[in-house]
C-alpha cells in the first residue's frame, strides 16, 4: 500500500490515506481533541468465487486532548455505486471499535465478505464507509475511504467450467511463457522473435499493443487459415505451423497483416494452446471475450 495511491493487481487492491478527526466545542469552535488515522482499504478477490474479502484497517497514529479517550469507529461496505445489481456484504456493519490513544497507537481491522449476486456480468464499485464517534459528541462523522479498484464479476462459460468469480478488470493480466520450458520452448522463441521483428510489438508488456482475447469461433478459424495456409503448412513439415499474434486474439492474421509464422514441433504448439498453459491463464485470470492481456517471454 502507498499513501494517496491505488495499488492493484488482477486480484487485490490497496489504497491508503491519512484522516484527521477533530472534536470541536460548540459554540466556541475550540478544538478540544484531534486524532490522526492511517486508513488502509484492501480487497482480496477469488477467480472462482462470487465472494471476495474486503478489509479496512484503521490505525490511530497520534491523538491529543479528549480524542485520546474513547474515540470509536465503525465500518460498512457501500455497494450502491455498482452497475446492475449491487453487491451484498456480511456483516452489514462492524463496530464500533474503540481506539485507546493514551496507550499508544491502536489498530482496528474491519473484515467483510462481499458477494456479487446472480449470473450476469456485473461491475462493482464497492467502497468502505467509516463512521467515527466520540462519547463527548452526540453527532457522528462519516468518511468514505474510496479508491478500491473496480471489481468485475461474471459467470462466463468460455473460460472453463468454474462458475462465478471476480477480478479487477483494469489490470491487464500477463501471460508468461519460458524459453527454458521444454514443453513450449519453440513457441516461446517464436513469440519473442515476433514481438521484436513485427512492425508493432504485439502483446509485449506495456508497449501499447495488448492482445484481446478471441474465443473459438469463425474468426479464430479464419485467423488460423490466413496465417497457416496449406502451402505454409507443407513447407514446415514435419513441424507444425505456429502463428503470432495468436489465432485466439482479435489481433490475429485475418484482421491484421502484421503477423508471423514459424515451424514449431506439433506437441509444443498443442501444449501451449491447451488447458495447462493458455487455457489455464485464461481461466485463472477470467480473460473474457475482448479482454486485454500481455504476453511476456522469460528465460
Amino acid at each position: 500500500c502507498r499513501v494517496g495511491e491505488q495499488v492493484s493487481d488482477r486480484f487485490s487492491s490497496c489504497a491508503e490515506k491519512y484522516l484527521i478527526v477533530s472534536i470541536v466545542e460548540i459554540p466556541s469552535g475550540k478544538v478540544i481533541g484531534t486524532a490522526l488515522f492511517d486508513a488502509k482499504n484492501k480487497t482480496r478477490l477469488n477467480y472462482k468465487s462470487a465472494t471476495w474479502e474486503q478489509e479496512a484497517v484503521l490505525k490511530m497514529v497520534r491523538s491529543f486532548g479528549v480524542a485520546k479517550f474513547g474515540t470509536m469507529a465503525s465500518a460498512e461496505v457501500d455497494c450502491k455505486a455498482s452497475q446492475g445489481n449491487g453487491c451484498t456484504s456480511a456483516p452489514g456493519v462492524i463496530g464500533p471499535k474503540v481506539f485507546w490513544g493514551i496507550w499508544g497507537a491502536t489498530t482496528n481491522t474491519y473484515t467483510f465478505k462481499v458477494t456479487s449476486p446472480g449470473d450476469a456480468l456485473v461491475g462493482h464499485a464497492p467502497q468502505t464507509k467509516v463512521t467515527v464517534s466520540h462519547p463527548s459528541s452526540p453527532e457522528k462523522a462519516h468518511f468514505t475511504l474510496g479508491n478500491i479498484a473496480p471489481v468485475r464479476c461474471d459467470s462466463a462459460k468460455n473460460i472453463g467450467n468454474i462458475g462465478r468469480g471476480c477480478v479487477h478488470p483494469l489490470v491487464k493480466p500477463v501471460y508468461r511463457l519460458s524459453k527454458g520450458d521444454k514443453a513450449v520452448k519453440g513457441v516461446a522463441e517464436h513469440i519473442e522473435d515476433a514481438q521484436h521483428k513485427l512492425k508493432k510489438p504485439w502483446g509485449a508488456v506495456n508497449k501499447g499493443y495488448p492482445l484481446h482475447r478471441l474465443p473459438n469461433g469463425d474468426l479464430s478459424r479464419a485467423n488460423r487459415d490466413t496465417a497457416c495456409t496449406t502451402a505454409v503448412k507443407n513447407r514446415y513439415k514435419p513441424k507444425s505451423c505456429d502463428e503470432y499474434p495468436f489465432a485466439g486474439s482479435y489481433e490475429g492474421a485475418a484482421v491484421n497483416p502484421d503477423y508471423s509464422t514459424a515451424p514449431v514441433p506439433l506437441s509444443e504448439n498443442r501444449t501451449e494452446g491447451g488447458f495447462k498453459y493458455r487455457g489455464k491463464f485464461i481461466m485463472q485470470n477470467r480473460v473474457l471475450d475482448y479482454d486485454e492481456f500481455w504476453v511476456e517471454i522469460t528465460k
Binding site: Y18, L19, V21, L36, V61, R62, S137, E139, A141
Partner: peptide, 14 residues
C-alpha cells in the same frame, strides 16, 4: 461538541 473528519494534508502526514 461536534466531530469532524477529513483527509489529512500532505504536510500533516508523518
Amino acid at each position: 461538541t461536534r466531530i469532524e473528519i477529513r483527509e489529512a494534508l500532505p504536510s500533516e502526514i508523518p
